[in-house]
């Protein structure tokens, strides 16, 4: 069976992408707001739960502290998940590109 976090939700997707550089929780939210052009603004509980969940599955890990805040970064497992998701999305995008008339059933 597929992993229970797959396919990645929008929240999980953005967090993994943001954590390709080391960041603490609040900075993750700020970065996501920016890279999503303001369309994804994570709330505190959602971010907390997602970080806990991703950490539990070993897709991100704490790499240090900035003041009292924990700094997280994506792991190699997390990167492998992103690669898988990228291939899945690229395939879906390719279906968008393909014109209907070429379909042979």
């Amino acid at each position: 069976m597929k992993h229970k976090l797959l396919p990645l939700s929008e929240t999980m997707h953005y967090i993994l992408l943001a954590l390709r550089e080391p960041l603490h929780g609040y900075a993750v939210m700020q970065k996501i707001e920016k890279i999503s052009n303001g369309s994804v603004i994570l709330a505190a509980g959602t971010l907390y739960g997602a970080i806990e969940n991703l950490h539990k599955h070993g897709w991100i890990e704490p790499v240090g502290e900035s003041g009292r805040r924990k700094v997280y970064m994506i792991t190699s497992e997390g990167n492998a998940i992103l690669k898988m998701e990228q291939n899945r999305l690229l395939h879906i995008l390719s279906l968008y590109e393909r014109s209907e008339s070429n379909e042979k059933i």
């Binding site: 939700s9 929240t11 994570l42 509980g45 959602t46």
Partner: peptide
């Protein structure tokens, strides 16, 4: 004003 911003959480 919310502490949860998506359906999953």
């Amino acid at each position: 004003n919310e502490i949860f911003s998506d359906r999953q959480s």
